[in-house]
């Protein structure tokens, strides 16, 4: 990298996806302007029924291939502990950022992500039915798993005592196969790992990125201009360090899982 300031790979990914959407929207807009000027019916992609459920989207959205591939729906369920009313709010997402723990797995991180959190004390919930702040239980549920599940492991956390970000080298095992419950389809969504962005280095503000990508049933290791074939079992060497201050500083940071369409069974 010739950059003087190291950039975060996850920030870049989100930037890239948003930029792609912008470009695609502009293209469609341009095509629409053209067709309108020639008085033909507008050409657009309109199977966005899933997306329009999301409250966040007010204008009628354009569904690009970015959305089709990466977009999923989270449900934020809040249950008021006084009146038991459940308020569910859908949110769309392009990726999941997971808190990590030492010697855990993606399965465990996802479980924690969806675990029930109690809102109390200073963090009470305004219940519309009770018309007041109440204690409540909140939980994030993946309602509609995306086609491509992008998981960012939160390895770079701001540590207040240090006044800066610190890299967490925790060992987080990511399986080659994963499942999420699809509450829309009432089935398990089966995923296969196909790419990993690896951060190398002990600090949060510097280091080097490499990636592992599965192509035609083989795992390839990409390090700048060097590409080599690696054994599937070598993926495990990027899980992280079981103990702090390990000499191993190569850690899986962003995981890409693709939904397996052929293997969807009840």
């Amino acid at each position: 990298m010739l950059l003087f300031v190291s950039q975060d790979a996850h920030e870049f990914l989100i930037f890239l996806l948003n930029e792609l959407v912008d470009i695609l929207e502009k293209e469609v807009q341009a095509a629409k302007d053209d067709t309108e000027s020639s008085s033909l019916p507008p050409e657009r992609t309109t199977n966005g029924s899933k997306v329009t459920q999301a409250d966040d989207i007010h204008k009628e959205p354009l569904v690009t291939w970015v959305h089709k591939k990466f977009q999923g729906i989270l449900t934020n369920e809040t249950r008021c502990l006084r009146c038991e009313t459940v308020t569910a709010r859908d949110e769309i997402f392009l990726d999941l950022s997971l808190d990590i723990e030492q010697n855990s797995s993606i399965t465990s991180c996802l479980k924690n992500f969806s675990s029930i959190e109690t809102l109390n004390a200073d963090d009470k919930f305004f219940c519309d039915k009770c018309c007041s702040l109440q204690e409540a239980q909140k939980r994030m549920k993946i309602k509609k798993p995306p086609q491509i599940l992008v998981i960012q492991l939160k390895r770079f956390n701001y540590i207040e005592q240090l006044g800066r970000n610190k890299k967490l080298s925790y060992r987080v095992a990511f399986p080659l196969e994963l499942k999420l419950i699809d509450y829309v389809e009432e089935a398990d969504a089966v995923y296969s790992l196909f790419a990993v962005v690896v951060h190398m280095g002990s600090g949060s503000s510097h280091g080097h990125y490499v990636s592992l990508i599965k192509s035609h049933h083989h795992w390839l290791f990409f390090d700048d201009e060097n590409v080599e074939m690696i054994d599937e079992s070598a993926v495990q060497t990027f899980f992280g360090s079981a103990q702090e201050y390990s000499s191993n500083t190569d850690h899986g940071y962003i995981l890409f899982y693709e939904r397996d369409v052929t293997n969807n069974h009840d």
Binding site: E101, N103, S104, S105, T107, S108, A173, P175
Partner: peptide, 9 residues
Amino acid sequence: AWGEGHNSW
């Protein structure tokens, strides 16, 4: 039955 309780493999 499935035993649930581990946080990793």
